[in-house]
Simulated scan of single mutants.
Amino acid sequence: MPRNPRNDADRFLDKVTPTAGGCWQWTGSVKPSGYGQFRVGARIRSAHRVAYELWHGEIPDGLVIDHLCHRRDCVRPDHLEAVTQRINIRRGVNIAARRARQTHCCRGHEFDAANTYRAPNGTRKCRRCRAMAQNRARHRREVACAAS
């Protein structure tokens, strides 16, 4: 028998508390990662995904839900946006997100097509800095050979 979505919405809203910052804090069950959980039928689902689907509709294939407020326990529908995983990571605040947003290397050289290469581990590297490091190493070897 199909579930009544209105009943799910009512049950869902019973587990929400508005905060002073405008978020809807999830007061139901929470995973160790900080994301809320909500039972829909026999399945336990992420509360923020359920919120998005209740108010915005189905999540398009290949997209994830981004918390625009950066709070994992927020389920306010207008704080949630369906985006690609790449966009979600770039909007984050962790080290991977900060590095993905970098436009220049630590010495100020621009990461552009001519000056950037991908290391085997997938990270971006500056060609100019690499060339300078190779020149310094070559010079050290020459000095060491001349001294012996």
Rank of each mutant, 00 (worst) to 15 (best):
I89Y: 02
R128N: 05
C129V: 05
V93L: 14
D112N: 15
Q85R: 13
R6G: 08
N115R: 07
H70W: 12
N4H: 11
G22I: 08
R127F: 04
C106R: 12
A96C: 08
R86F: 05
V30A: 06
R76A: 03
C106V: 13
Q37S: 05
C106D: 13
R76Q: 02
N135C: 11
R76Y: 00
Q25D: 05
P120E: 10
G22A: 05
N4V: 07
N94M: 10
N4S: 09
N94T: 12
R45G: 01
G41Y: 08
V40P: 00
P120N: 12
I59F: 02
W55H: 13
R11Y: 09
P18L: 10
V143G: 02
A82R: 05
T116S: 06
R86A: 13
D10W: 10
A97H: 13
A146R: 15
T123H: 12
E142L: 12
A97P: 00
D112K: 07
S33T: 15
K125Q: 13
H79K: 09
A146K: 14
D73H: 08
T19D: 06
L54E: 01
N88T: 08
V93E: 10
R98P: 03
C126P: 00
Y117T: 13
R127Q: 11
F111M: 06
N94F: 12
G41I: 07
I65K: 00
V16H: 01
L13N: 09
A119F: 15
A42G: 08
D73N: 09
N135A: 14
C126T: 03
Y35G: 01
N121G: 08
V64C: 14
A9R: 08
Q102A: 14
T19M: 10
C106A: 14
G62D: 10
E58P: 06
H70S: 07
T27P: 00
T19C: 05
Y52W: 14
P32S: 14
R101L: 12
T116R: 05
V93N: 10
I65P: 00
G41V: 06
M132K: 13
I95Q: 12
I59P: 03
V64P: 01
V40C: 05
S33E: 08
W26Y: 04
R3S: 13
H104F: 13
A133C: 13
I65C: 01
C23V: 09
A100G: 14
R136S: 12
N121D: 15
V50M: 04
C105W: 06
D14R: 13
A137T: 07
R6Q: 15
F12Y: 02
I89F: 00
R45S: 04
L54P: 02
Y35C: 03
A96E: 10
N94Y: 10
A47G: 02
K31P: 00
H48E: 04
V75Q: 01
K125S: 06
F12M: 02
R90F: 05
D73S: 07
H104T: 10
Y35K: 03
R141W: 12
E53Q: 15
R3Q: 14
C106H: 15
D8M: 03
A47E: 00
D14F: 07
G28T: 04
V16E: 00
H104E: 14
C74T: 03
D14V: 01
R140K: 15
L68W: 04
M132E: 15
T27L: 04
L13T: 03
P32G: 13
D8G: 04
G92N: 05
R99D: 07
